[in-house]
Amino acid sequence: MEILMHRIGIWIGVFLTFAIFSFLYKDNPFYKIAEQIFIGISAGYWFIYTIYNILIPNLFVPVTTDLAHNFLLLIPAFLGILMLCRLIPSIDWVSRYALAVVVGTTAGLFFKSYLQSDVLNQLTATIINPFASGNAAQIIGELILIIGTLTGIIYFFFSKKHEGAFGTTARVGIYFLMISFGAAFGYTVMSRISLLIGRLNFLLGDWLGIIKP
């Protein structure tokens, strides 16, 4: 029985894979069916997952079993109910209070961490002696790092017109940015091809058995 269910699962997976791939030819009913199934299952899955893995263990169980030690949990529970008021048009404004708390606390909590990691530590990592290593390749690499960082920052400085030496430096910054966009594009292609490899591995391995999955 278990093997049969496994085989049925694979065939459903194969059908949905081909249904989605069929969009590459042109839009068609099979693609639409697969798309709607995906949206429906995702919504249902997340709804149930949120109840059973977030609300029940983190709110309902602590509050119902030991309210004295967990009464603070009633505050986020109340804010959550306020958020649901968005569904009732006449009182949807109430949800803004909950949203304000989320925005405020997130900004406060993340401000220090982002400042430390993305500004201070990144800046410190750029303030280096490029000639310290003695290795030619490393020296060139570190010089590129310094020049790229400085010219990139200058490009984003818009309070002065980009002309003369300042403009030339900003132009160098653009080249560095373009190279980084190219690298990002290359990585994105690699990522998407990896997903195709994953699907083909499923089709050729799990379904057809031509290769070892």
């Binding site: 990592a125 990002a184 990585y187 994105t188 990522s191 990896s194």
Partner: peptide, 27 residues
């Protein structure tokens, strides 16, 4: 990380050792 994320995270592999190393995508 996924290859899409790799160029973003590579900036953290630096002198400060924010990241010790990184495996980027399938490669």
């Amino acid at each position: 990380t996924t290859a899409v994320q790799a160029p973003i995270m590579l900036a953290y592999v630096n002198e400060q050792q924010q990241l010790v190393g990184l495996l980027g995508g399938l490669k």
